[in-house]
Structures are given as structure tokens and as C-alpha cells.
Design a protein around this nucleic acid. Structure first.
Length: 417
RNA sequence: CGGGGUGUAGUGCAGCGGUCUAACACGCAGCGUUCGGGACGCUGAAAUCGUGGGUUCAAAUCCCACCACCCCGACCA
């Protein structure tokens, strides 16, 4: 991609109102743009990262048998009344058609998927079943905050599993837990698995927490027995409930959660199956969420420095940032431009994701500063200096380490992902 | 939903009853010089001061209402 044609304009300043560093950097670097409180537009750079995260999630969901579906966001009131959540779900967005009927904007999808699979699940032979869905979610938050970390409209992946019995649910629950750890690792995050309260329908559930000062959740860690547990379920204690050791309080942002729903929603919608003995039983369910747009923010919270973002390679919008630094002397500049163009063409041909800053009216200093702000993993520079040595400069964003590499070795070194 | 705060060119902000014909910086347009860490000079365009009402000889500035945004708390499948 050539920068001169690309929809992005970085900003030097953002409102001092914005407290979350992820929102500041993503706005300055033009990945996202706020429409209104808790509602954001994703610009080309931001969307590329979202797509990368989604791709990782798709791969890991499919690896544990998940099949992707896309459910409707406009939900009839009836479904939400059937579970009682039309009145009890605090953050439910309700909209009325001008012809009178009411709808919910989906904040989660149990109310849609459970009646949906009734048309599929009749027998134990139809189980287990794993379906996942990636789309926007709506929650009428009383207070959205921290930019993209807690919004009223956000992107989420949810996976729903259907089982014959609790034992099978338990088994799959643990597989999902492992898949989630792989997902977050691939996103460049160290996500801690924290025991949490499952609300009214499950005694235990787990959330995946990334430690950051911008997070909203408090949880405890016991060093001696390695317990992680949400503060919500440990009341008035400074000692580990498991081994008596001292507890350390941590603050984090919840990037994912997994719940054993058991038969709560099967009961509401009368989702049953015949077992081997011809007996009718409730289907056991699990649900598993990942906040994708929140992940975008948390990745930045966890990966930045004073100059900007430092994208973990697998989720970077592009892998390479390519530029030529002009000298002002016509002859040399022509040579530099020719060399950069040829590298760009070569990288494109080989399918390498490269962001080429070909803008002619932008100074070298500005290009360099912007490169750090955007935070692509590697920067390739051609300059008068490098050309004299028949070389190019390769710099890693994360370590700031620079290598001069001979142009003839380009193909050996630059391989793409 | 309680408490606190803020709304002024595209962006970030100054001004807080008369000196406002609303300042500064960034950005934008034009011309020229630049080009290894957000270059410089000159010229120029761009604001019915969030909305509505009120007080006053006079309102961006004071008062009331509404709207929007931010922060703390409550809330958070």
C-alpha cells in the first residue's frame, strides 16, 4: 500500500479529555475515530488489525470444531421476554419500529441461537455442536469509558457449545480455555486465567485478564499456589482461600470469558434431545466470548512506548514500513526513489504486507516520527548512506535495533510472514 | 443514575462583562527554500463562541433550562 493513496492522517494532538493511552495512540495514528461516546469508526489501519485478530480467532475456533455463523442483531422482543431478560438485562438497547413493534439490539446471542438450534438438535447424534459468530454487539452502558475498552457498540466473537451432559460440557470448556490462551498469545498478550463468579447460572466461570492500569477489574493472585481469582468472589480476605498464602491485588482488562450455561437457556426455550435410551433431556450449553474491539485497545495498552504503538507481528496492520529518505540533491534522490520503488514492487509481488511511504511533500523527520507512531514491526529505509554501501537499513520497532543489510541479500532476509 | 468538570475555526487551546473587528499553535491553500526524528520564511482562507431563553446601555464572558462530551462512583453475560 502506498501512503500517498491511503486513507490516513495522523494527528499531533488529541483532546486532553481522553485518558486511556490506547485511545490516544489509536486516534493519533488514525486507526480509529470516535463518533460519539462509546461508539467508534474503524479506519483502514484499525480495520486491518481487527481483521487480523478475527483471522486468528477463526483459525483457533475452527481448530476446536467451531463453525461460523452470522446471527441477526435486530432481535424480536418475544425472544428476550422468553428468558425474562427484556426487563432484567440492564444494558439492553431497545428500539421501536415506527409500525409499533419492539426490538432489542443484541448484546449477546443466547436468545437467538438457542431457539435457532431447536431446528437442528433432536437426537444425541446431533451433539455436540459448536457454533461461533463475530459481529457488533450493543450494550446501553450507563457509562462508556476508556475509548475503545468499554463501548456501547463493539465487536465481539461468541462461541456457543451444545452437549449431552455436563461431563462433555466440562471437557469442551477446557478445550476452549486452551484455545483462548493460544489466541491471546498470538495477539501478543499475556492473558491470565482468573476464576470468576458465573452469575446466577453457573458457580464457576473464567475470565481472561490482561494486566493494565486502564482495566476495570480487580483480581487477586496467590504466588504460593498460583491462584487467580476475581475480587468479586473473595470477600474481605487478605489470605489465599486455597493455601493461606498472601494475596496480591492486580488490575486488568477482561479480554475474554467462558461460562458453563448448563441448561439455563435450554429450559427457557425448551431445547431438548433424545438420548440413547429414548429419554428426553435438556441440552447442556456453554458460551465463550472475546471482545475483539476491546482486544485492539488492550493490545495497544500492553504494547507501546513514548513514541507510539508497537504491534505484535501477527496483528500488525502491515508487517513492513518502507521509505526512502531524500537528500535534496536531484541525482541522488532519483537513485534512492528508483531503489525504493523496486523493493516495493518486489515485496508486493511476493505478497509481503508493506506500507510504502511514497509521499513527496512530507519531510524525512515527519515520516520517521509517523513510522514510530504507527508501530509496524519492521522498517526498511533506503537513503544516500545506505545506497553508498549497496545496502538497506532494517530496524525493528520493538527493540529499536538497526541492521545494515546488503541489497543482494534482500530476498534472504525479507521473507514476510 | 449520584458527584465533579468541559463545550470557542478541521484539530489542540487562550480569552471569562466594555481594550473582541475573538488570540495562539497545528492543519489547510499559494510561492520559495528545505529533507536521518513531526523543517523554515512570506502570503492567504477558515469561528453565526454547543442550543434556547433571560439579565444588562453592553454577553464568548453573568443567570436558567436543555443537549453533548470527559473524569470519579454505582452498574457491567
Amino acid at each position: 500500500m502506498k501512503a500517498s493513496k491511503f486513507y490516513f492522517k495522523t494527528r499531533k494532538e488529541v483532546s486532553q479529555d481522553e485518558a486511556a493511552i490506547s485511545a490516544v495512540l489509536l486516534t493519533k495514528a488514525n486507526f480509529i475515530e470516535k463518533l460519539t461516546s462509546g461508539v467508534y469508526n474503524f479506519l483502514p489501519l484499525g480495520l486491518r488489525v481487527i481483521r487480523k485478530i478475527e483471522q486468528i480467532i477463526r483459525e483457533e475456533m475452527e481448530a476446536i470444531g467451531g463453525q461460523e455463523i452470522l446471527m441477526a442483531l435486530l432481535n424480536p422482543r418475544k425472544n428476550w421476554e422468553q428468558t425474562g431478560r427484556w426487563d432484567t438485562f440492564n444494558a439492553l438497547f431497545k428500539v421501536q419500529s415506527k409500525y409499533g413493534s419492539w426490538f432489542a439490539l443484541a448484546p449477546t446471542h443466547e436468545e437467538v441461537i438457542t431457539p435457532m438450534v431447536k431446528n437442528f438438535i433432536h437426537s444425541y447424534k446431533d451433539l455436540p455442536l459448536y457454533l461461533f459468530h463475530i459481529s457488533d454487539k450493543f450494550r446501553d452502558e450507563p457509562r462508556s469509558k476508556s475509548g475503545i475498552l468499554r463501548g456501547r457498540e463493539f465487536i465481539m466473537k461468541d462461541l456457543y457449545s451444545f452437549h449431552q451432559d455436563e461431563k462433555d460440557l466440562e471437557k469442551y470448556y477446557n478445550r476452549v480455555k486452551k484455545a483462548y490462551q493460544r489466541i491471546f498469545r498470538r495477539c501478543g498478550l499475556n492473558a491470565l486465567v482468573v476464576e470468576s463468579s458465573g452469575g446466577t447460572f453457573s458457580r464457576f466461570s473464567h475470565e481472561f485478564q490482561v494486566v493494565t492500569p486502564a482495566g476495570e477489574d480487580l483480581f487477586y493472585h496467590c504466588r504460593s499456589c498460583n491462584l487467580y481469582r476475581n475480587k468479586e468472589i473473595i470477600k474481605n480476605t487478605k489470605k489465599c482461600p486455597q493455601c493461606g498464602g498472601p494475596l496480591k491485588e492486580l488490575r486488568g482488562s477482561e479480554v475474554g470469558n467462558i461460562f458453563k450455561l448448563k441448561d439455563k437457556y435450554s429450559q427457557s426455550f425448551d431445547l431438548k434431545f433424545r438420548d440413547k435410551n429414548g429419554e428426553s433431556k435438556n441440552v447442556m450449553m456453554g458460551c465463550y466470548g472475546i471482545g475483539i474491539s476491546r482486544l485492539l485497545g488492550v493490545i495497544v495498552e500492553a504494547n507501546h512506548d513514548a513514541n507510539g504503538i508497537i504491534w505484535p507481528p501477527e496483528v500488525a496492520p502491515f508487517e513492513y514500513h518502507l521509505m526512502g529518505l531524500l537528500k535534496g540533491a536531484k541525482k541522488e534522490d532519483e537513485a534512492i526513489k528508483r531503489q525504493v520503488e523496486s523493493l516495493y514492487e518486489k515485496m508486493l509481488k511476493r505478497g509481503i504486507e508493506v506500507f510504502y511511504d511514497d509521499r513527496e511533500n512530507v519531510s524525512s523527520g515527519e515520516k520517521l516520527v509517523e513510522a514510530d507512531l504507527l508501530g509496524l514491526p519492521y522498517r526498511i529505509i533506503i537513503s544516500e548512506k545506505s545506497l553508498k554501501n549497496h545496502s538497506f537499513e532494517l530496524k525493528e520497532r520493538k527493540s529499536q535495533k538497526v541492521k545494515m543489510i546488503k541489497l543482494k541479500d534482500f530476498d534472504k532476509i525479507i521473507k514476510g510472514r
